[in-house]
């Protein structure tokens, strides 16, 4: 389990890094926290000829909020920094709640927020949460930069819209509307495992306690984050009741097409999706209705 030979470059500025990506293109791989890439290289499943190590780019490690309350997280910010950050807890409680569920403390001490997203693993929490929270990603190349909405970013298993010469540098999470509730539910074999099925819910109530907006985004059930659009449409404009939540949760199955593996059959995954959707919606609506729910 030793990697195939590769060339190693450790740029000290983003500009320099982008120069290398422009030069090597498909032959290069970006090394962030290395928690997925290094094992893949050791298994020789990934054999990049050039490794561009971003760990010296201090400029990509930050957490701050913009004037409008938008949260900005640098791509090289470590998971444990996000996990312990007050700003994140306040502005994006769903992210705050999800962080301890990502792998182990050891992995979180090294793994990066941006690395997890750019890796586009369909079993990852953060990809899904960014979609559920209407996040945006700043992608840079020597050619320039662009902002990509999270829901347009993921193309499939381990694939995103990032071009070979492009890298994710920053994540933006908009402020939550008043009377918004959230929840993340997952079923995993062991505490740190990738979930068999997971779901993030973000819901907003209007002044009459009716559902104004609802997002229900799944992970581990497809090639990337999968949103149950029709199921949540059943909730919009309605007064929320346990029966309504149950009906919406039951309906998610029609929009999911999970595959089987040695840990879970399709049937079991669909069953879990319904159970977890119901639990997530119940928790999210309860939070939205709770007095003092933040206006960010």
């Amino acid at each position: 389990m030793k990697p195939a030979p590769f060339e190693y470059i450790a740029p000290t500025t983003v500009e320099e890094a982008l120069g290398h990506l422009a030069e090597y293109g498909y032959d290069a791989k970006i090394l962030a926290g290395g928690q997925s890439l290094i094992p893949m290289m050791n298994f020789r499943l990934a054999q990049p000829s050039v490794l561009v190590d971003l760990n010296k780019l201090a400029e990509l490690s930050f957490i701050r909020s913009e004037k409008d309350g938008e949260l900005r997280i640098g791509a090289m910010t470590r998971h444990f920094q996000v996990e312990r950050d007050d700003l994140v807890a306040e502005h994006a409680p769903l992210i705050h709640e999800a962080m301890p569920k990502i792998a182990t403390p050891q992995i979180r001490s090294r793994g990066t927020f941006g690395g997890s997203i750019a890796h586009a693993d369909p079993a990852a929490e953060l990809t899904t949460i960014c979609v559920a929270l209407d996040g945006r990603f700043r992608c840079q190349s020597a050619r320039g930069e662009r902002w990509v909405p999270a829901q347009d970013f993921f193309l499939g298993m381990f694939t995103s819209v990032l071009e070979p010469d492009e890298m994710l540098v920053e994540i933006a999470i908009p402020p939550m509307a008043p009377r918004t509730g959230w929840a993340l539910e997952e079923a995993a074999r062991r505490a740190h495992d990738f979930a068999l099925v997971g779901v993030g819910a973000v819901v907003t109530l209007d002044a009459k306690d009716c559902c104004e907006r609802a997002r229900l985004v799944f992970f581990s059930v497809g090639d990337g984050p999968v949103e149950a659009v029709k199921a949540t449409e059943m909730l919009i404009g309605k007064e929320v009741s346990p029966d309504l939540i149950r009906a919406a949760a039951e309906a998610v199955t029609d929009e999911l097409d999970p595959s089987a593996d040695i840990h879970a059959s399709v049937q079991y995954r669909l069953h879990l999706a319904r159970v977890l959707a119901r639990r997530a919606l119940e928790k999210a609506f309860a939070r939205a209705a709770a007095p003092g729910t933040q206006a960010a």
Binding site: A187, H263, Q267, H271
Partner: peptide, 8 residues
């Protein structure tokens, strides 16, 4: 056992 097997 496993959760899958208990489900079955």
């Amino acid at each position: 056992l496993s959760p899958q097997r208990l489900f079955e």
